[in-house]
Computed example of a mutant assay.
Amino acid sequence: MIAAVGVELPPRWASHPLVVTESAHHAWDASDAWWDDDALLLRLRRLAPSEPPGYGLYGVGDAEAVARLILAAGPLAPVGRTTVPRGTRAALARLTRDVPAPFDRPADGQWDWMMADHTPDPLPGEDRVEELTGPEGLAEASAALAVAHPDGELAVGQARSRWWGWRESPGGGRGALRGVVGADRRVPHAPWVLGSIGTDPAWRRRGVAAATTAVAVRAGLAEAPFVTLGMYADNDAARRTYERVGFVVAQANESSR
């Protein structure tokens, strides 16, 4: 699998789970790469038509090692988005008095990149989970998300995406959907990225999200060695749900725009 278009990475980093998944998910086009045994730093061309031309930075591995690569790389401008291991800015402040832009400003957000690589144990409520397919199923998913997670980042109808819902009535009944999970699978055989995971606020804390996510994880593991997702670091309720299904934090990140 090509890890990033534009550069040739050593096997240590070309096979790293985060690199394999994120490069396929975001179609990375790299202009430069720096690495050692402990870290990888990529300068990525921004390709989104909605954004001005420029570059983003993505760091993988140990935070202090990524900080050393940033200093070794020299001038980085122009840089827009950055995603680096949490603690990279603190490490830069320890290593130099002249922290390069844009790392001389606080991060805009902190989030965790999580992965699950084993089949979850059966959870209560899985008998209420079904895959949502066809125009009718996707319309139901969209309507449920409008209540459960209106700001979900994965859009219903995204090419190659799959969707599951948790129904009020078990056993094939047509009760209302109270929970939804989507899976983004833009590149065949690449690890799935789960997104737009939401539960109707009136039905939370009943295991709805855990049951629905567990079903999606099993489906994803049938196509790739692991399944991933990203979550804001301060979302303790979501963390408990994902850990229950078997997700672990593979890299804690800090990002800026």
Score class of each variant (00 low, 15 high):
Thr83Cys: 14
Asp38Arg: 15
Gly207Lys: 02
Pro52Trp: 08
Ala139Cys: 00
Ala143Asn: 05
Thr133Leu: 12
Trp203Thr: 01
Arg240Glu: 10
Thr88Lys: 07
Met114Tyr: 08
Val248Arg: 15
Thr88Cys: 02
Gly165Thr: 00
Gln110Val: 10
Leu132Gln: 06
Leu145Ala: 08
Arg86Val: 06
Phe247Trp: 12
Ala224Leu: 11
Arg81Leu: 03
His26Lys: 14
Arg45Phe: 04
Ala67Ile: 07
Ala4Met: 06
Gly182Met: 07
Pro124Glu: 12
Arg205His: 12
Ala3Val: 01
Gln158Ala: 14
Val215Ala: 12
Gly125Cys: 07
Val129Gln: 02
Asp121Gly: 12
Glu168Trp: 01
Gly230Ala: 13
Ala190Asp: 04
Arg204Pro: 03
Arg160Met: 01
Ser50Pro: 06
Pro188Ile: 05
Asp184Glu: 11
Pro191Phe: 10
Gly137Asn: 01
Asp151Glu: 15
Leu76Cys: 07
Gly87Ala: 05
Arg162Thr: 01
Pro100Gln: 11
Gly165His: 01
Asp200His: 15
Ala176Phe: 07
Ala146Pro: 07
Trp13His: 11
Pro85Trp: 05
Val245Gln: 13
Ala101His: 13
Ala209Thr: 08
Gly80Val: 00
Val147His: 14
Ala72Gly: 11
Ala211Glu: 05
Asp121Ile: 01
Asp62Met: 11
Arg206Asn: 06
Gly61Gln: 13
Arg105Asn: 00
Ala3Ile: 05
Pro102Asn: 05
Val7Thr: 03
Val193Cys: 13
Thr199Asn: 04
Pro188Ala: 07
Gly172Gln: 03
Pro53Gly: 07
Pro10Val: 00
Ala72Asp: 13
Glu130Leu: 13
Pro225Tyr: 12
Ala146Phe: 01
Leu40Arg: 00
Glu126His: 01
Asp234Cys: 06
Asp104His: 12
Ser15Gly: 13
Ala93Lys: 14
Ala209Phe: 02
Arg46Tyr: 03
His149Thr: 05
Gly207Ser: 06
Phe247Thr: 00
Met231Ala: 12
Ala48Tyr: 10
Trp35Leu: 05
Arg46Gln: 12
Gly56Trp: 02
Thr88Ala: 05
Arg218Glu: 08
Ala116Met: 11
Arg97Thr: 09
Leu9Gly: 03
Trp35Gln: 04
Ala27Gln: 15
Leu123Met: 14
Arg174Gly: 13
Val84Ala: 00
Gln251Arg: 14
Gly171Ile: 10
Val19Cys: 07
Ala77Ile: 05
Gly173Phe: 04
Leu42Lys: 04
Ala224His: 13
Ala224Trp: 13
Arg204Cys: 03
Glu223His: 15
Gly109Asp: 05
Ala67Gly: 03
Arg162Tyr: 10
Ala148Thr: 02
Trp34Ile: 08
Gly6Tyr: 01
